[in-house]
């Protein structure tokens, strides 16, 4: 058992955990930050993705002790950070995921949104292939990724003030030319 001082979402948090506990276990079961999900617990799915010093890493393959001294961002931290930065509502990535219908069961999405957030921080205007590659460590079983890509592109369109993507069904469908959001 060791006492860990972790910087999570800007808070300095003290907790105690045995050495063999992963960051994912400590976040979820010691700190109550259950937004980070577990889908395989061994590096295969990306559901546990959190940002460590701004980079997406797998919390199921990171020891909690190894995260001491780094800045950890979980999904719970995106909205407060956005508000602190003077924004309103939620982080634009979260908002775009919600609007684009990307949040089906939502289980893969905390990891997905954090990966997307990190991508956009590094490259504010990636093309579709770059987005696909960046998200290729996060498995989603519900969406077929289509609305996820649309969401990321929508967030980009907003920040670059360009045209958001228009999937075929929106062009063709009598009721949805104006999406009511």
């Amino acid at each position: 058992m060791r006492v860990l001082t972790l910087d999570v979402n800007g808070d300095r948090l003290e907790t105690a955990a045995p050495d063999h506990w992963t960051l994912l276990e400590v976040l979820r079961y010691k700190l109550g930050l259950t937004g980070s999900k577990q889908g395989c617990d061994k590096g295969d799915c990306g559901a546990c993705t959190v940002l460590v010093d701004g980079k997406p890493v797998l919390a199921c393959l990171t020891l909690a002790a190894e995260a001491v001294g780094s800045k950890v961002t979980t999904i719970e931290g995106l909205r407060p950070a956005h508000l602190e930065g003077g924004g309103t509502g939620v982080d634009p990535v979260q908002d775009a995921f919600d609007r684009c219908g990307a949040l089906q069961c939502g289980f893969c999405q905390p990891g997905m949104m954090l990966t997307a957030r990190a991508l956009l921080n590094e490259n504010p205007n990636p093309d579709r292939t770059e987005i696909q590659k960046a998200l290729s460590g996060n498995l989603c079983r519900c969406t077929g990724y289509t609305q996820i890509l649309e969401a990321v592109e929508t967030a980009i369109a907003e920040s670059t003030e360009s045209e958001p993507p228009r999937p075929a069904w929106t062009q063709d469908h009598p009721h949805v030319r104006e999406d009511a959001l």
Binding site: G43, G46, T49, K55, V57, L58, T62, T115, K133, G137
Partner: peptide, 9 residues
């Protein structure tokens, strides 16, 4: 190698 997160780690 592997996927993006794993290459970061």
């Amino acid at each position: 190698v592997a996927g993006p997160q794993l290459r970061t780690m």
